[in-house]
Design a binder for these strands. Structure first.
Lengths: 247, 247
DNA sequence: GGCTTCGCTTGATCTGGGTCAAGGTCAAGC
DNA sequence: GCTTGACCTTGACCCAGATCAAGCGAAGCC
């Protein structure tokens, strides 16, 4: 097993200004023209809703920077986040006209959008893009399944620790102090959004954050800036296997 | 909105003896020879383990009949089911050598297997199969996200009702009495497996089943045979939107 | 027949996290 | 400087579901 990988494990094209793994223009030069013709950018600010479940959605998109969340809401208002999209993640489903989930920007956000119909045409003509999309979807399914273990079986404290480790692993803006091994990053979610992610209430999220802070597992600078003195100590709180993978 | 669809909504090829949507030999006559050459059948009995997480897995497969479960286990024994495979569902991931989850047969089970390497070759040469696999994976992702809402936000009673309605919808062996509207089927899972599916204990599953029975929402004939006098009454217990979809 | 095992049910009790309520902190706007 | 509102923290209390424990019924086996 290699040492813990913290930086951007899923992105094929971290150096690409448009970080869409599925359709990175730099990596697929032959598709550049197609893509350039149908792509455009959209910006949202933190808290804005991008689409509501059931809305027509005439585009698919790739997150350039910022964070977006997919959430489901029950009639009585109970909410569960079911997807968290970080830079390079893909939003939308080809062949589906309407959104299935509410999509909101949890931070300021830039999307690189593609009109859905021509994107779909491109899928049909350039097979390896749909293969790449398949790979990404399978990755997302694995993430969803890890998330299900978290929702179904972990304690509140384990949920918080797991969430922090997931963000730490995936956040490209993280910076790790090479000497001390300390890591630091900003939470891209409010306490309420964290609660929706984790299947908790915001009060429980707050209490458990305080608990981890009291026990020295994390430091809190302001409400949103997290410092992790020792990542292994955090990992011990997640309930996950120590080596984070299959032997 | 069409009337409630109960029979086999996901299978493209319900009439095909091999019900694999991804690679149905009947529907894709041109691939018949490829597939015939690399396919073989395996049978398992209820309770048998097919692979353990971390094992080498040199095949992918399609469920012909019976039910298989994917589960994750934590070090201290807490278990969460993360996938339930019914006839026509696909098992395994091309490009992945080792299993990520424990796979067990929860009923007697027949798989139609394809050796992984030649299957992967076929994916590369016949693009529409990978497109079909993408569609199926996206469906599974949607199912996982509905499951996440269940795990994160539903009460025990709602979880049980949701589970029963999911099985009722998908089980091909269900038979609905056209006059009375009654539906009946056998549970493909033990109480313990249901608990692992729902993020509950088996005691709570048992109690809630008794509760639904007491309230006339279901009838129990033996331990495993379920009769649903009125599907709409069951749906009212799930916490889901009445019309089961987007307006 | 008697014994064991497996799957399930039911009861009594406990507890983690939900609920309700109050108050703190900080930035923006007047 | 004061007010407002968004976001967060903390305390007191409660309850749904977990835990612990006993027992049932049917199938399989000696």
């Amino acid at each position: 097993m290699p040492q813990r990988q913290l930086a951007f494990p899923q992105a094929d094209c971290a150096d690409c200004p448009i970080r869409h793994r599925a359709v990175c223009a730099r990596c697929e030069a032959d598709e550049l023209e197609h893509l350039e013709a149908i792509k455009y950018y959209r910006n949202y600010e933190a808290g804005q809703t991008i689409v509501w479940a059931g809305d027509k959605m005439d585009f698919v998109a790739s997150v350039v920077h910022g964070v977006a969340a997919l959430t489901q809401t029950m009639e009585d208002g109970r909410r569960q986040m079911v997807g968290l999209l970080l830079p390079s993640d893909f939003l939308g489903r080809p062949n589906r006209e309407r959104a299935t989930y509410d999509v909101t920007a949890t931070t300021d956000l830039q999307l690189c959008c593609f009109r859905r119909a021509p994107f779909q045409d491109m899928l049909n003509t350039t097979p390896h893009v749909s293969q790449r999309l398949l790979e990404m979807t399978l990755d997302e399914l694995d993430a969803a399944r890890e998330w299900m273990l978290l929702l179904g079986r972990k304690t509140a404290r384990e949920k918080i620790a797991s969430f922090l480790s997931i963000i730490a692993r995936r956040d490209a803006t993280i910076h790790q102090h090479s000497k001390t091994g300390e890591m630091a990053f900003d939470l891209p979610l409010t306490r309420e959004a964290m609660a929706d992610y984790l299947g908790l209430t915001l009060e429980t999220v707050s209490r458990q954050m305080s608990g981890l802070k009291r026990d020295g597992v994390i430091r809190l600078e302001g409400k949103r800036h997290i410092v992790i003195p020792d990542f292994d100590v955090l990992m011990d709180e997640t309930g996950d296997d120590a080596d984070g993978g299959v032997f």
